[in-house]
């Protein structure tokens, strides 16, 4: 029977073991205090029971020393837990710079994912072992949450903004993917599998996944198809700012403020162009693309802008740090 009762999910990412270690520390501390209190209650109840001979109650007001001790020790322990947990959290929140870039879009009730090379899959994610993978995620409707217990990580997927998560798988196998944020009727069916492949198998898988265009290529196509290029070009008197090599740099706005050109800003500028217009250009000239582009399209455009003119502006960090 105990074989059917494992106490933690498989450890399949570099984050799993550190999380389990922290968990065990907390379990140990909790077990100690729960036992301590239980034993004290049992001992006191037995030893000082009312029907013992000559029972009287001692008059005890309290003890400042004891109060200090039992305030101080828990405080110290919780500070250790807090610090340890915070360090781990920032590790979980900061993807390494060389991570593979995946995009994930949640919608009622499925997970759509796209690989850096353009392959798409639904409710599945195939990733290579030993390589950090970064997921840029958004939702088309309500809040979802991308949760892979074997990797000990999850992140809410929120409509209207991008969230990030990353992991590095270190064990081959197929693991559960759950939606952890209640999202409506079929919430419990918004599940899938994450498959960790060897580097070689991953390449084989990619090759069999249909030769679609990469997100950046799709973005380049959309950049023309949606007529972005009509205004955003490098000609004198262009009606919009040239976007080549701009991603990951700062822009001066009409308001005088500065803004980092990152995924969130690009998204906002496509859907609500008047919100933050670059200095020197007319506010309200660009129409909104709300309703004309899908979340996937915006992600493709962002991927394109990251590479667009990257050669020209080799110095600027093309991967940016939009995440955090």
């Amino acid at each position: 029977m105990w074989k059917d009762l494992p106490l933690h999910p498989e450890q399949a990412s570099t984050l799993a073991q550190p999380v389990d270690l922290l968990y065990l520390f907390l379990v140990a501390v909790s077990a100690f205090f729960a036992l301590l209190i239980s034993v004290l209650i049992v001992v006191f109840t037995a030893k000082y029971r009312k029907d013992r001979p000559n029972a009287t109650s001692a008059h005890i007001e309290g003890s400042t020393l004891l109060e200090i001790v039992w305030t101080g020790i828990p405080l110290g322990l919780t500070m250790i837990m807090f610090g340890w947990g915070a360090v781990l959290f920032f590790q979980q929140a900061r993807p390494p710079a060389n991570a593979l870039e995946f995009t994930v879009t949640g919608k009622q009730w499925m997970w759509k994912a796209q690989h850096p090379t353009g392959q798409r899959e639904i409710n599945d994610l195939h990733i290579p072992i030993g390589v950090p993978c970064r997921l840029t995620m958004t939702s088309e409707d309500v809040i979802h949450s991308y949760f892979i217990p074997a990797f000990r990580t999850k992140q809410d997927v929120v409509p209207g903004r991008y969230s990030q998560m990353w992991f590095e798988a270190n064990k081959l196998g197929t693991y559960d993917l759950f939606c952890a944020e209640y999202c409506g009727t079929k919430h419990s069916q918004m599940i899938g599998k994450v498959t960790v492949l060897s580097q070689k198998d991953y390449e084989v898988w990619l090759a069999g996944g249909g030769s679609s265009e990469t997100p950046a290529q799709a973005g380049e196509r959309l950049f023309s198809a949606l007529r972005c290029i009509t205004c955003h070009n490098n000609t004198a008197g262009a009606r919009g700012p040239d976007l080549a090599g701009k991603f990951g740099t700062e822009a001066l706005l009409t308001s005088g403020a500065k803004v980092m050109i990152d995924a969130e800003y690009v998204r906002e500028s496509i859907l609500n162009p008047a919100a933050k217009t670059v200095n020197g250009f007319q506010v309200g000239l660009m129409p909104t693309y709300q309703g004309q582009v899908k979340e996937d399209d915006i992600l493709a455009l962002i991927a394109y802008l990251k590479t667009f003119g990257a050669a020209k502006a080799a110095a600027s960090p093309a991967t940016g740090n939009a995440a955090k």
């Binding site: 999380v19 968990y23 501390v29 919780t78 837990m81 947990g85 979980q92 952890a180």
Partner: peptide
């Protein structure tokens, strides 16, 4: 005590929800 588990950020990422 289990509330403390949830308040520890690195652990909450796994056990949240």
């Amino acid at each position: 005590l289990t509330g403390v588990f949830l308040a520890v950020m690195g652990l909450d990422r796994h056990v949240h929800d």
